[in-house]
């Protein structure tokens, strides 16, 4: 697997590169600004871009904008956005460019190296992974939402873990229930959110998306 890293602080750029290389992920390019990122993506066609939100020239959300643009140029291009603080707003904007192959994480999570590398692989494989902080924020936000109000507390917990990109087995482990029970909850969620059966493969992503995007 090949990755491109965009991060303006050399310290963190090197740290990320080292972690990925230690886990047999090839870092095709590590750049420090959005222009270089666009060029690297064009040239390398990587399996995933790992992008810092804040980059030159204005140090606000260039990284986010660059990620969204990259996905506009190459739809479905997997992007994992990292930041030193997370905003629900940014998560929403990112998800509007499509919910597949998107990740948005607090940089702190990188220290859980195993989890982080797993996340990189998951996003590269088309998964959706959001930081638990974003999910928690949205969870409180969605308490007021009608469609979400129909979910039981247990189902919402399952939903939150799905949004964090966890597999059924991982959710079962986290909630200390059987995989079968998780299956049941997820089916119930699909029913309650009116997700059609024919989109079987995408229903998981669609549920997360619906969960995150409804106001």
């Amino acid at each position: 697997m090949r990755a491109v890293i965009a991060e303006d602080l050399a310290l963190l750029r090197d740290g990320l590169t080292r972690i990925l290389r230690a886990h047999d992920i090839d870092v095709a390019a590590a750049v420090g600004d959005p222009v270089a990122l666009a060029a690297a993506l064009e040239e390398q066609q990587p399996d995933i871009a790992i992008v810092d939100v804040r980059m030159p020239p204005t140090f606000t959300n260039e990284g986010l904008v660059a990620a969204i643009e990259a996905r506009a140029r190459r739809p479905g291009m997997p992007v994992l956005v990292l930041s030193q603080y997370v905003e629900q707003l940014y998560a929403r904007e990112l998800l509007l460019s499509g919910a597949e192959g998107v990740g948005y994480l607090l940089k702190d999570r990188v220290s859980e190296v195993g989890m982080f590398v797993e996340t990189v692989r998951k996003v590269a494989g088309g998964g959706t992974v959001l930081d638990p902080d974003v999910v928690t924020g949205m969870l409180t936000h969605h308490d007021r939402n009608q469609a979400m109000a129909r979910l039981t507390r247990r189902e919402r917990e399952v939903m939150a873990l799905m949004a964090e990109g966890r597999s059924n087995a991982a959710i079962a482990g986290k909630l200390v229930v059987t995989a079968k029970a998780v299956d049941k909850h997820i089916n119930s969620i699909f029913m309650k959110l009116d997700l059609p059966l024919d989109a079987e493969d995408n229903r998981r992503v669609l549920a997360v998306l619906r969960y995150l995007q409804t106001d």
């Binding site: 740290g15 972690i19 990188v110 190296v113």
Partner: peptide, 25 residues
């Protein structure tokens, strides 16, 4: 804010990354 973001905060993130990797190694 910028000084903290690019300075202390970034360094602590890097420390966390290094320690994470160290744990594995």
């Amino acid at each position: 804010e910028r000084d903290l973001h690019d300075g202390a905060q970034a360094r602590l993130v890097s420390v966390a990354m290094n320690l994470g990797l160290a744990e594995e190694l």
